[in-house]
Every structure is written in C-alpha cells, then in structure tokens.
Design a binder for these strands. Structure first.
Length: 460
RNA sequence: UGGUGUGUAGCUUAAUGGUGAAGCGCUCCCCUGUUAAGGGAGAUAUUGUAGGUUCGAGUCCUACCACAUCAGCCA
C-alpha cells in the first residue's frame, strides 16, 4: 500500500506492486512522467516515475489524468528529488480505468465544501475527505476500544420503534400504507392496517431500550443511527446521525460525568496518536490550532459546574447577551459559547438542570426543583454529550410521566425496570458527528459524514 | 421554521444601469528530475427561474427555487 511505500523501512531496490488512483501527473518531454498515486491508506501520495520506454507510454500513460485507476509494478528506490524519501521506478503500469479530464469534477484547484456536497460520490477522492474518513474510522475504533476495555457490552437497539413519545424531537414515520389512497369523509387512518399494526417511527434514541439491558447485564453501550425530523438548518444538525449511548448500572451522575470525560479524552488521544499525518493537514488547512486544542483536552480536567452556578456566572459576567440569562430557562447558544470559549476555555460539564426543561426520565434531586442531568459543552460546537442519572424510583417516575401528560401505558415495560430489582443507573448520548467535527475542526457537520441527510436533501 | 446573505465559463472570482473579464483546468507549441512545475498561443457563458421598471438590466424591483450562515429544536 502507499502508506507502506511512503514509510519504507526495508531494503530499497526491491520490487513492489501498488494499486490506486492518480492524484496528479507531471509530464516531461525529456522522456518520462511523474505520477502521484493515492490509495486511501494514508494522506500522502507516492511518486511514480514512468519512463517513455514503457510499452504503453505513448498510448496510455500520457493520457492518464487525475482520477484514473492504475496498478504499478516497479522498483522502490530512494528519491533523488525533494519532497519524498521513496519513489517507484515503474516497470509496468496497467490502466484499469481512464478518467475524462473534461467531465471529472475534481481539479487541482481547491473546491468549496458546498460544491463538494453536490458531488458526494466523488468527494472521498479529495485530501480533506480522505483525512476526515480516516479520522472518523479512528473514532469508531477508539469508541469500541474504550467501552470494550471497560467491559461494556455492545447492544443493538431497534431502529424502528412504536414508542409514540420518546421525548426527543420530531420523528420520521415508518409505514407501508398506501399514501395515495384517499380517505373518505370523516375517515381517519387506521394503523391497525399498517405493517406493524400500530403507528411506528424511526428511533430518536436507543436509550430506553439500552436501560433494559443495563438493568440486567451491567454496563452496555449502543452505537447506531438516529433520526430526527426537525427542520434544522445549522452547521451542527443532521436528520440522520450516529449516536454512542453508554448506560451504566449501579451508577450515579458523578460516574456518568467521569465516564463522559474519560471517553472524550480517549477519543482525542487516539486521534492524536494514530492520525498524525491527517491531523497535520487539518491544522494546516482547516483549523490552525486543532492539535493544541486536542492536546489540551487530554491534559486538563473538564470544568464541572451546576446549572445554577452557570446562570450566576452569566449574570455576573456583565456581558451583553441577546437573551438575558435567567434561572429556569435553557441556556442559549451564546451562553454556552461564553462559558466554553471565554470563561473557561475548555469543555464544561453542566449538571443539575431545572426539571422543567429536561426529559421525564431524569432523576429528581432532593431540592425537587432540579434533576440529575448533565450536558458536556465544548468550544465552538456546544453540546456534544447530553446525559443523566435515570429516575429509578417507581412512584416518582410514574408521577412525573403523569405530570407531563405522557401516555403512561406506552411505558409499562420501562416502568417494570423500576418494579423488579430497580438499580440506580445513568448514561448519556454522544453525537458522533459532533465528535468528528470537534476532532477535525471541520466547520460543517455535513462534511464529516459520507452522505449527509438534511431537510430537502437525501441524495445519493 | 424565522433573520441575513449569495446565485456569472468545468472550478474560483471580476464587471459606476451602457459591447460580460481574469486565474485555474483543458487543447497546441517551447522548456524541464518534476512535485500547486515554468513560458507562449487558443477554445470555453441562454449571468438560478419567472415577471416587472428602463431607450438599455449580470447590476434596480417583486415572486419563486437552491445554497450558505445565524437563531430555535437537539446530539
């Protein structure tokens, strides 16, 4: 692979075989061409020297343009030129597929991220998306490493759910009913006729199901797709995104915060240790301080403050906010940014939110005004993790469900967990794409997932 | 969903209401162990869509569409 050839640590002048795509080519009329090949194994390319003595030099090599796919059999040698240690003297070049330079959308010139989104099937061939893809992969690997090393069991929670009200946002309906069938006057849709015999949606969270396994097997985590049908048009929202949701039995909100902080630190150090070349690219071209930023995460502890103290800090900051900070109202983006980017300049975990702005399942605190919720806020992105200790008291949970006018019958199985050997337990959800954004410095969440789904866009 | 902004060649951008330019890429020529190669010549546009104002609209106005961005919803 190109990665191996670039960092050649064996004897030179041996024969190797490479397969990949041409990134750029420089012809010399003196009788040879330089081809740069990339195969996705690393950020950099390897230089191939193709001499005119090759039998297909005139007929094929000169017609190769960026995007063409080739295999090269050749001798790896120390490079006499600047910019690389090793290069390949080609003995044989086989062309798999030519690439029409007049219609191929990628040129040497820098393309805007917006333009690349229109060609999402081609953009993985760019430097940026190669780097994003490798870092994203590293974060997937690091996630499983982290939880597996701690004995968490990975569970797959359902994608299709019949829960009418999981609490988080608008849902996509799943149906096999004929949408073209016209209803008669006064007729309503009868979901008994639908595929599952009831109204179903795509999941907005695997948490409730994960709790059932945590309350049986200890510590578990999910890592799956999540769907929100909100009409959100921002740089940090997707309609379809991936979420990592650990759930711990015999754990409280303190354990939850510790886990969240350890996990984020593990993600950052994994990327720093294993994606050095890609991170140098991000530092150079995407975000000038990204490496120091990640190092700071791994070296310093997160700030932990209560919601009440956070509001106090905001009020006492004397900063002019568009929305006045006030106890009982959710923190606005400008408030979060002040805390993470100006006041503390690092991730901030905020706990003990007013119960009225949080979900029904969160553990009531003794003050009866707040719940054991925690949000991890990071600079620039804001909320990257949201979690809580769960209410494990049957009576308190039932009461809360009724208070919030949620259909309690839908939650009979969820309440059963509190009826049969209830345990204190806690967990959180990490927006995986936000983590990729955070680690790469990419400004728009649509550029850290291969095929972003957003309002009005489900192409490819 | 609301506020703001943008839409011109394959790409990136110019163009006081008056004949739509340039760079990159492409084609040809010259030079060259080059590396965002260099030098010279050439080809390339229903200015997002539909109306309107005007002698004349890429430019001004209206509507729509798309995209971006900020905010809300959240992860």
């Amino acid at each position: 692979m190109v990665n191996e050839a670039r960092n050649w640590d064996q004897e030179f002048n041996t024969e190797i075989l490479l397969k990949g795509w041409i990134r750029t080519k420089r012809d010399s009329k003196g009788g040879f061409s330089f081809l740069e090949i990339n195969d996705g194994s690393c950020f950099g390319n390897i230089q191939i020297v193709a001499d005119k003595e090759l039998e297909n030099y005139e007929s094929e090599i000169l017609k190769l343009f960026p995007g063409s796919s080739v295999s090269i059999k050749g001798i790896i040698v120390e490079s006499p030129g600047k910019g690389q240690n090793a290069e390949i003297q080609a003995k044989e070049i086989k062309v798999y597929g030519f690439c029409d330079v007049n219609t191929y959308p990628i040129q040497k010139q820098r393309l805007s991220p917006e333009k690349l989104r229109e060609i999402a099937h081609i953009r993985p061939r760019t430097n940026t998306f190669g780097a994003v893809t490798r870092v994203r992969n590293e974060l997937i690997k690091a996630t499983h490493e982290f939880y597996q090393s701690k004995g968490f069991l990975n569970i797959h929670t359902p994608i299709i759910t019949g829960n009418d009200c999981e609490g988080a946002g608008q849902m996509f309906q799943v149906t096999t009913l004929d949408m073209n069938r016209k209803l008669k006057e006064n007729e309503t849709v009868d979901y008994a006729d639908d595929f599952f015999g009831k109204k179903t949606h795509l999941t907005v969270s695997g948490q409730l199901e994960a709790e059932t396994y945590a309350c049986a097997l200890g510590n578990v985590y999910t890592f799956g797709p999540t769907f929100r049908a909100e009409n959100s048009n921002t740089t940090r929202h997707l309609s379809e995104f991936w979420m990592v949701e650990p759930e711990m039995a015999f754990a409280d909100i303190q354990d939850d915060m510790d886990l969240a902080e350890d996990y984020l630190k593990h993600l950052c150090s994994s990327v720093l240790n294993n994606c050095a070349e890609d991170m140098e690219f991000f530092q150079k071209r995407i975000s000038k301080t990204i490496i120091e930023k990640l190092q700071n995460i791994t070296e310093n502890s997160f700030e932990r403050i209560s919601y009440t103290d956070a509001v106090k800090i905001l009020v006492e900051s004397n900063k002019k906010f568009e929305f006045k900070p006030e106890w009982g109202i959710d923190l606005q983006t400008e408030h979060e940014r002040y805390l993470t980017e100006e006041k503390f300049k690092k991730p901030v975990i905020i706990i003990d939110y007013p119960k009225n702005i949080k979900a029904f399942y969160m553990k009531a605190n003794d003050d009866e005004k707040t719940v054991a919720a925690m949000d991890v806020l990071v600079p620039e992105i804001g909320e990257i993790i949201g979690g809580s200790q769960r209410e494990d008291d049957f009576d308190k949970l039932s009461k809360r469900i009724k208070e919030m006018e949620i259909d309690i019958d839908e939650y009979w199985w969820y309440l059963d967990l509190r009826k049969f050997g209830s345990v204190p337990h806690a967990g959180f959800g990490l927006g995986f794409e936000r983590a990729v954004q955070f680690c790469t410095g990419m400004a728009n969440i649509r550029d850290v997932i291969p095929f972003p789904r957003t309002p009005r866009n489900a192409d490819f």
